[in-house]
């Protein structure tokens, strides 16, 4: 073996050793080490944006409207506290959050944001949750709708431009192609408007994020019920602007620690979200 070969072998062994040591480290919260671990975040106040009309992810506390609670908000707080990052919440309409993240008006968009390849071109994600779609209906499910394939002839509501909107329109075509009455799709601008459609009976079902549907059905059993659920394969993550790598890393490592301690599942349980929807923290760029 030449001298050159030896050095290569030593270097390889060293590299393995270092990597092994890093992997062996238990993820832990070290808020005091912020300045050493993520120097660019030291002394900075991170702005994270959310829309407080998206229960159970972000909402006002019914006991004190000045407080913001919810699964996303609590998880974000846990992660930032874990890393010793100072933060403040910026509250705005959901559709304004992504432009504000891209323009740098806010640093993190942490509010029920699905990963899509299109969005990933402009933001980087830390994924933490599997998304599902739920169908909300009136208590007792009067039309006995048990799945998307049973929606022919019904009136169904979905948020304008959402994946649910697209799925319902596709189903409408399928129904008509099969010679059955189609699906009447009603789109709404905000969640509350969609819920009103179900409450007043204008729509038979409303399709939206599963956790929202479940918390509504659990909290208001006299009024609502979950008609069915679909696991769509979408994942949900916190997003930062492309190139904001140190913040992305801090969130990722913080999330790993919070998940390891069972913190995320506890938060999900608190807001009646199925803990099994948790996915292992993962950085995802485009």
């Amino acid at each position: 073996m030449t001298a050159k070969g030896w050095t290569s072998a030593v270097a390889f062994a060293l590299a393995l050793g270092v990597a092994g040591e890093a992997l062996a480290q238990a993820p832990a919260c070290e808020p005091a080490k912020l300045a050493t671990k993520y120097p660019s975040l030291a002394g900075k106040t991170i702005k994270f944006g959310a829309d407080p009309q998206t229960p159970p992810y972000t909402m006002r506390d019914g006991a004190d409207f000045n407080k913001i609670i919810g699964a996303d908000t609590d998880l974000a707080r846990a992660v930032f506290d874990c890393q010793g990052i100072k933060y403040e919440i910026f509250l705005g309409g959901w559709s304004g959050l992504l432009p504000a993240t891209i323009s740098g008006q806010i640093d993190v968009f942490w509010n029920n944001l699905y990963y899509t390849a299109e969005r990933a071109k402009q933001v980087d994600y830390v994924l933490y949750m599997q998304a599902g779609t739920g169908a909300l209906t009136q208590a007792g499910n009067p039309k006995k709708i048990g799945g998307l394939d049973q929606t022919c002839g019904t009136t169904a509501a979905a948020g304008l431009g959402t994946v649910e909107d697209a799925a319902l329109k596709k189903e409408d075509e399928k129904c008509k192609a099969a010679g059955k009455p189609g699906v009447t799709v009603m789109t709404y601008p905000d969640l509350a408007a969609g819920i009103r459609l179900v409450q007043t009976g204008r729509a038979d079902i409303m399709m939206t994020d599963l956790a929202i549907v479940e918390s509504l059905a659990i909290d208001n059993p006299q009024t609502y019920a979950r008609a069915f659920k679909i696991l769509t394969g979408f994942t949900i993550g916190a997003a930062v602007k492309n190139g904001n790598d140190e913040l992305l890393k801090a969130i990722y490592e913080g999330l790993v620690a919070v998940q390891a301690s069972g913190g995320q599942k506890a938060i999900f349980q608190k807001y009646k979200i199925d803990p099994d929807l948790q996915v292992a923290a993962e950085i995802k760029k485009d």
Partner: peptide
Amino acid sequence: AQQIVGQNF
């Protein structure tokens, strides 16, 4: 107002 509605419907 929408936020309150979003919280308690």
